[in-house]
Design a binder for these strands. Structure first.
Length: 641
DNA sequence: CGTGTCACGTA
DNA sequence: CGTACGTGACACGT
């Protein structure tokens, strides 16, 4: 859908425009009726009594009426704020705003109707950090308000973030579900009266009432969730980490990253050509056409016509995944498995590039959206497009990264990433002297660990030993079993068991820590990161073995992945703060879990590199010190190191 | 048209 | 029988 002019979202019956609004509110891929007005099926709503809709006492403001209202209510307690806007491909506008104060009626206004005094009063109030606000998903509001020149400061509670910190695993953070759960009421009576039908379009007044109800709900929810937040000891996480992160992410999303359309198109052509070749070759070798993209048809060809040996089972048949195809390639003279691998690889790259091209904005940049409340461990995720899974492992895939380049007015891209941050966190949390020493010795980590496990001098560690140890080290933080390790390394489970025993003989503190973590989580019901981010795992006491063991692996991974996520957020805030403190123009663009990408202004490369290294390394003090590697270049690929 | 499955990209 | 994600294609339901 094209980005529309300001006010597009006001067209009440236009379903496309409605979807834009929903997108702006980040109810993506949603059945809008369900998301807007139905109760979240995943929320614990059973104990809540009949949910009455909130009947709001509201006033629709005309021009000149906002300034006096703000003068009266803007300086008392916090105001709830809810807005409707559009945001697509890096551009957007706000079409409706509602404010609710604890005392007196809520108000609604169309920002286009404000007179000069209103506009001035609103801009001043919204930017004033000493005037407290409560919002639901403040990042979306900040992002689109900035298009009008409005900077939002003074957000005391973001109800979506608060719910996330209180219960990070919940399926939905939609305002409606939270309202029912924490306040025991629906957001607006219109929904109930209309039998769950979307109330938009009934008339302007109903629309305004609905938004004012939301603002009132947000305000009340902020109160309730704010209390819960303090109860679980997450108030500081909210104030010092998640809220500042939201604000930074809003700026990063708005900035976007410059895309080289020509390069991406060239890549697309290249991958499409390779796909076509693979398809033709596969058809020729099989003797007839079939859809290579259909696992079902492929199974019929591989295991039916060709009579190749069966692989592992899936729910519906036999797997044709990359591991299975590679295995089949060794089992047969037939070329199809290899052709399929080539097809899948190239097809994957093609669709990745196609997706990227579709998201390039009119400003020539790609504006991802970071989701701050989906990953139960505390990580961010990225959508539309996902810039956290751009290929990097193969040369052909990595070439896509050359399509992300430094923008006009800037000198280079700078990437900075933490080396082995999760293993360092594991060393820190476990306090295992051997592992900590392995990080402080200055030698290559995996070589050092391998030398211990295989009981050989460090200079006698061969690449094969290093590979196995690296896989095992990372696997441990995921709850890897001896069987899983054997599968991955292509060795017997006995050999894998021996490797793990040797590892734990040398690094017993790690085993003790992992066991302790699961046990404590079983006792308390949750795990915790060093910054007090909780993850609840009720399945730890499940009678179902599969569920229980799954929860155990989650329990031992969550503090490690979550602590790393906390650290990266701290690092991002420190880097951003330092850039501002030193009056630099360079800016942060991307985050990829343990890496950040900056766009460096002319003449700032050296100072940026020094600053980033300093702020990231010093984000927290671990027993195994943080290490950062930095690189820069004209594009994301050449900025790698 | 929505949903589930399979497959696969990243950390 | 290794954690955390998002996306696309297909197949099947409605």
């Amino acid at each position: 859908m094209d980005e529309g002019p300001a006010g597009l979202a006001r067209v009440p019956y236009d379903t496309e425009a409605l979807q834009v609004v929903l997108d702006a509110l980040e109810f993506r891929h949603a059945n809008f009726r369900e998301r807007l007005f139905a109760v979240d099926p995943g929320a614990a709503v059973e104990e809540v009594e009949p949910a009455e809709g909130l009947s709001v006492d509201g006033t629709v403001l005309g021009g000149g009426e906002l300034a006096p209202w703000l003068a009266e209510h803007g300086s008392r307690g916090p105001l709830g704020l809810s807005a409707v806007g559009v945001w697509k491909l890096g551009r957007g506008s706000v079409s409706e705003i509602a404010l609710a104060a604890a005392e007196g009626p809520a108000v609604w206004f169309d920002p286009a109707q404000l007179d000069e005094a209103d506009e001035k009063a609103f801009a001043a109030w919204i930017a004033d950090a000493s005037r407290p606000k409560v919002l639901h998903d403040s990042k979306s509001a900040m992002r689109v308000f900035a298009e009008h020149g409005w900077h939002i400061a003074g957000v005391r509670v973001d109800t979506a973030l608060a719910a996330y910190l209180v219960t990070p695993g919940r399926r939905s953070f939609a305002l409606e579900g939270l309202s029912v759960e924490y306040l025991g009421r629906e957001v607006a009576p219109a929904a109930a009266e209309a039998g769950g039908q979307l109330a938009l379009g009934t008339d302007d007044r109903a629309e305004a009432d609905a938004l004012m109800s939301k603002a009132r709900t947000v305000l009340d929810l902020g109160e309730a969730l704010g209390r819960r937040l303090e109860e679980v000891g997450a108030g500081e996480l909210m104030r010092d980490l998640e809220l500042p992160t939201s604000e930074l992410l809003a700026r990063m999303e708005r900035a976007g990253i410059c895309a080289d359309r020509d390069w991406l198109s060239q890549m697309e052509q290249q991958f499409a050509g390779a796909v076509e070749q693979a398809v033709n070759a596969a058809h020729a070798s099989v003797g007839h056409e079939f859809n290579l993209g259909s696992p079902k048809q492929l199974q019929e060809v591989l295991f039916g016509e060709l009579g190749l040996p069966k692989t592992k089972k899936t729910k519906t048949g036999w797997t044709t995944d990359a591991d299975a195809l590679a295995w089949l390639a060794g089992q047969t003279e037939h070329e199809l498995p290899v052709q399929m691998l080539r097809y899948r690889e190239q097809q994957k790259l093609r669709s990745t590039v196609e997706g990227l091209i579709k998201t390039v904005s009119v400003d020539g940049r790609i504006h991802t959206t970071y989701n701050q409340t989906v990953a139960a461990t505390g990580r961010l995720s990225s959508t539309d497009p996902n810039l956290q899974n751009i290929p990097v492992r193969t040369d052909e895939g990595r070439a896509i990264r050359r399509g992300f380049r430094v923008g006009e007015g800037y000198e280079s891209l700078l990437t900075a990433d933490y080396s082995q941050i999760e293993l360092r966190v594991m060393a820190h949390l476990s306090e295992d002297d051997g592992l900590i020493e392995a990080f402080t010795s200055g030698e290559d980590l995996h070589d050092t660990v391998a030398a211990h496990v295989f009981a050989v001098p460090a200079d006698r560690v061969d690449p094969e030993m290093r590979r196995k140890i690296k896989a095992m080290s990372y696997g441990l933080a995921y709850g890897l079993s001896a069987f899983g390790l054997s599968q991955q390394l292509g060795i017997t489970p006995d050999e894998a068991r021996k490797l793990m025993d040797n590892y734990f003989e040398r690094f017993g503190g790690v085993r003790d820590y992992l066991r302790r973590t699961v046990e404590e989580a079983r006792a308390t019901g949750y795990t915790e990161t060093i910054m007090g981010r909780r993850r609840y795992l009720p399945d730890l006491t499940s009678d179902n073995r599969q569920r229980r063991e799954m929860a155990e692996r989650m329990a031992l991974n969550a503090p490690i992945q979550g602590t790393a996520a906390d650290i990266v957020k701290v690092a991002m805030l420190r880097v951003d703060e330092a850039l501002r403190a030193e009056n630099l123009t360079s800016r942060m663009l991307l985050q990829v879990h343990d890496e950040v990408v900056l766009e460096v202004a002319p003449g700032e490369r050296e100072v940026c590199e020094e600053l980033v290294r300093r702020e990231m390394t010093g984000a927290v003090s671990l027993r195994a010190p943080l290490a950062v590697s930095v690189g820069s270049g004209a594009d994301w690929e050449s900025a790698a190191h």
